[in-house]
Simulated assay, not measured.
Amino acid sequence: MHIVILGLSITSSWGNGHATTYRALVRELVRRGHDVLFLERDVPWYAAHRDPSGTWAGRTELYASLDDLRERFASEVRKADLVVVGSYVPQGVDVGAWVQGTAKGVTAFYDLDTPVTLAKLERGDFEYLAPHQVPGYQLYLSFTGGPTLGRIERELGSPAARPLYCSCDPELYGPGGGKPRWDLGYLGTYSHDRQPVLERLMLDAARGWPEGRFVVAGPQYPEGVVWPPNVERVQHLAPPEHTAFYTAQRFTLNVTRADMVRAGHSPSVRLFEAAACGVPVISDAWEGLDTFFRPGLEILVSHDTRETLGYLRELPESERQAVGQRARERVLAEHTAAHRARTLESYAREAASGRAP
């Protein structure tokens, strides 16, 4: 297939989780023989934080404006077998309208932020998607599965809402050697709704265990955050550094955004990346988590400071390693980028044939 993807970013992982997902997916599609063109709006905040070129596959082009996009890439969109528009694309409503009016092949909306998107639509916030556009996409590809998919079809009129979860790249994420440097770490951009959970599950644990070693990596944290003295801060961590970061932890923490907790069935890329490294994950609780990992066996669930400290100080080392190994085996069997590429292929081909995916 000839595939065109219009996404938030593939060139910069600064302050977003989209880039790593797109890179892994595009690479696997290219490996399977598809021609993939990724179109990205050239914006100053990503231009100032580009990751090293050559860390992603396919063809990538930057466009300066909506007019520039229309003038330079109309023929590519018109001849494509599949055109995908991602969430949070600048001027996404206008981009989507242009794609739906131009493309001759299958069109899809890829929502890497489904619960956030649905909450925005309820508020009348049509930043990158408008409700009337949903029926015009033959596929609604969602980072969230479960009951939310039925809601997208019933309430928004999608012909086919299907899960296309985030994944990990097993060529980039794997076990490391050496002694862990930190007892617990967290990787994530600041979010006001995640911060109270981070405080409860990690920062309060750090305050309650001064001998413990903790680390938080990610940008945009406000100056008012009070970091305990045993919590190290890393402002930004490029994807090539993620594996070394995860494997330097005894445990890693996953904290989910409030909208995604409410929707359930919304795994974050941190879950799969850390698990692929064989590092046991301590996660907040949300509906559907047990469809990706078995709690207590492949993932550890914490509701409060006491539970977090219990894992850190009381779980035997042999069981800690076993949890990480079982999670890694689960990821390699079900949650790699190669799995997602094959899934996308099947959705696109069935949509093109006129059959419901």
Rank of each mutant, 00 (worst) to 15 (best):
R151A: 14
E273Y: 09
L184D: 07
A285W: 15
Y190K: 05
R342N: 04
V279A: 00
V234C: 10
T336A: 08
L300W: 05
V134Q: 08
A351H: 04
P316A: 12
L297P: 10
L271K: 11
F293I: 08
G354A: 11
T305N: 05
L253S: 00
L66D: 06
R213I: 02
G212R: 00
A74D: 11
P44V: 12
A258K: 07
M202Q: 03
R306S: 15
V26M: 01
V301T: 08
V215I: 13
T11N: 07
E273R: 01
T55P: 10
E28K: 06
R330F: 06
R342C: 01
P222A: 12
P44H: 11
V30C: 14
D193F: 00
S9F: 02
A352I: 00
V30L: 03
D204V: 01
N230C: 03
V216M: 08
S9Y: 01
L271H: 03
E287H: 12
V85H: 01
S191L: 14
L37P: 06
A333T: 13
G354S: 10
V93S: 01
L164Q: 09
D125H: 15
A276N: 09
F214E: 02
E232I: 00
A47G: 14
R306D: 13
A352C: 12
A80S: 12
P240Q: 13
V301L: 06
C168E: 09
P210C: 11
E273G: 05
P240H: 14
Q220Y: 14
V255L: 11
Y63L: 10
G150A: 13
F272T: 04
P240L: 13
Y246I: 08
Y63T: 08
G146W: 05
L203P: 09
D259S: 14
V106K: 07
M260R: 09
A338N: 04
V216I: 13
L29Y: 04
V93Q: 04
Q91I: 10
T114K: 01
L82V: 11
P90R: 10
A48L: 15
P90K: 06
V30Y: 00
D290V: 04
E287C: 08
L66Q: 00
R23T: 06
Y88I: 12
G96K: 05
G86P: 02
D68M: 12
R233K: 14
G150H: 12
L300I: 04
C166G: 02
P267K: 05
V231E: 05
G288W: 10
V234S: 03
A160Y: 06
L201N: 04
Y246P: 05
R262L: 14
L129F: 10
W14S: 11
F38I: 11
A322D: 07
V95E: 02
A130N: 03
E153F: 02
W45H: 15
E329C: 05
D94Y: 04
G178Q: 11
H34Q: 06
A119R: 07
T189D: 09
T114D: 03
T20D: 09
A206R: 01
E122G: 06
E223R: 15
V216C: 10
T148I: 13
V116S: 00
G188F: 09
D94M: 05
H132P: 06
I5H: 10
G218W: 02
V116H: 07
W227Q: 02
L39M: 09
Q133F: 05
L289V: 05
P147E: 09
R328E: 03
A248F: 11
V99R: 05
T291M: 12
G174I: 02
A108E: 01
G92F: 00
P180E: 04
T343F: 07
